[in-house]
Design a protein around this nucleic acid. Structure first.
Lengths: 165, 165
DNA sequence: CTTAAAAGTTAGATAAACCAAACTTTTTTA
DNA sequence: TAAAAAAGTTTGGTTTATCTAACTTTTAAG
């Protein structure tokens, strides 16, 4: 059973994992910078995370994730990436908005939904009925404000030709 | 420019709108019940919302939304419904999970993204290349754990036939 | 190897949301 | 219409997550 963590604590784990990936270990100062927080806030949070068994924390030393923390951090990162990919490649949201929105949504989505979403993205780019050019059509449809004079018959003819070739 | 409201305050507005729809006005007790909070918490929140101009609040009396509050409440409700529809009809998440997840995600999604999402749902059920039977294929694909031996050529042939008929 | 700078910690404050329980007002009903 | 019940409010307390500023430890430089 996955313990409930606040959005705030999930964010700490996420950036610690990212810092570990870049620098092997995380330092309080870098965490503060990445999360736009003061160092004092970071110290308290780290103690809290250590007490809950997510990080290895020794005063004045560097910080690493425990196995439990790593698992959880990877899970959050996975959610972030899946959501961002959906926003970017399917809904065609701009990079910055996608990143910011993913940062918020990652804490609100549950395991079942994220799995379905990931699978859906997959399906879209594997199913010949969908794919890149289908997304292009969506983009036009969306830009036109829905109504649009879409030539559906022609689109399907072209699809068949493409699938054959 | 839309003022930032906490998740908590957005929830109040959302249920007040729902109660207004059913009962013309909202009462503190009903709000407390719908949000699973104590009445004392509701009183404070209402004062806060009144101070910010979202609700009409008079001690011991019923509660209604101001125009500003109604606008905001409708916006939140719209986000809720769009997300739920996506989870339910596209990702095929079960009713309860969809409802709960929508309740959380509605606070995390921005205007641009929700518009694209709504448009995307629309597009899926209007584009002949997608639609109900395409979602069915996704469901199988997803259930099979992605790999699947999908007969794509046959699927496209059938699509063409259907589009003609 | 001493000291200045950088990094980290601690302490005390604040704000948002909540709760429980005492209290007040309104509504119902006998 | 008086008393009981229901609804609403107030007060005081808790938790979580932050901040600022003083202080301590570690690191780096001369």
């Amino acid at each position: 059973m996955k313990q409930k963590l606040s959005e705030s604590l999930e964010n700490y784990l996420e950036v610690i994992l990212a810092l570990e990936k870049t620098n092997k270990v995380a330092r309080a100062k870098e965490i503060a910078e990445k999360l736009n927080l003061q160092q004092g806030s970071v110290t308290s949070a780290l103690k809290n995370l250590a007490a809950k068994g997510y990080v290895n924390y020794k005063p004045y030393s560097f910080i690493t994730l425990t196995d439990k923390g790593k698992k959880r951090a990877k899970d959050i990162t996975y959610r972030h990436l899946a959501i961002k990919e959906f926003l970017l490649k399917v809904l065609r949201i701009d990079e910055q908005t996608a990143e910011e929105t993913a940062c918020r949504m990652e804490h609100a989505i549950d395991a079942e939904t994220i799995d379905h979403l990931a699978c859906f993205i997959n399906f879209i780019f594997r199913c010949p009925r969908a794919g890149e050019n289908w997304i292009q059509s969506f983009k036009s449809y969306c830009a036109a404000g829905n109504p649009g004079k879409n030539n559906c018959k022609q689109c399907i003819d072209e699809l068949k030709t493409t699938a054959k070739g």
